[in-house]
Amino acid sequence: MSRGPRRSTEDHPLLRVTLGVVAVGFIGLFLVLPLTMVFSEALSRGLAAALAAIEDPDALAAVRLTGIVAAVAVPLNAVFGIAASWAITKFDFCGKGLLTTLIDLPFSVSPVVSGLIYVLIFGLQGWLGATLRDWDFKVIFALPGIVLATMFVTFPFVARELIPLMADQGREEEEAAASLGASGLQTLLRVTLPNIKWGLLYGVLLCNARAMGEFGAVSVVSGHIRGLTNTMPLHVEVLYNDYQFVGAFAVASLLALLAIVTLFLKSFLEWRYADEIAATHRH
């Protein structure tokens, strides 16, 4: 293979090979290998055993609970994310910087602490504990607490995705819509939302993946009641601690599959709608 002189942007072949090997090795060691292990452990006693572990009533209950939690937390966080990014990027108001910082709080707080906050507020010994007991409304060690903890942890995903996008798009299109006679709601529905739909979809996908996979915060508020307040990640832990490795890895592979499907969907959307996504950025 004959080659001309090296272009200035081309690195030394040895350097390129080294970098390539390091990158591939890293990905292989830390991402692909563990993922393969999850599936191979799940299938170590055959497909039937893995399926049986998933069909166990407690496992099914965990899958159902995770689904319910995500179904409540993700739409609420999507609505919140849209509202917050709309307010932050399209209006000027006092306390805007504070709000922007607060949105990031769940990213910087340890999930365990997030869970504990809710125990302190809603738990029996907490601020609202007595009141809630009088109303016979259980938050901690029940579904509402799990939903709250999940929401707290996944709070920033949609807003984080939308704020830079909407800031980049500016306010001019909204101003144009107003000068053309559109009401606030019409502007939101016909101008703002269509411009952010792809960013919103990414945000929701990531938010959903995290909502289903959240362990720390949920672990604190759930109480680990099998078949009742165990989400999928918690169920994996319970099974693992019981030395039921096939079961633990079988449920874990469901979660891993979810992650793969999320990534696949994201890549598919990026590929399928590349033009439209590019067009929603400032031209």
Binding site: E172, A176, S179, L180, T280
Partner: peptide, 16 residues
């Protein structure tokens, strides 16, 4: 929105 002032923006602000 009630003024009916036709505003043309410097960067056009077309709905992309």
């Amino acid at each position: 929105r009630e003024r009916r002032a036709g505003f043309v923006f410097q960067n056009y602000a077309l709905f992309r």
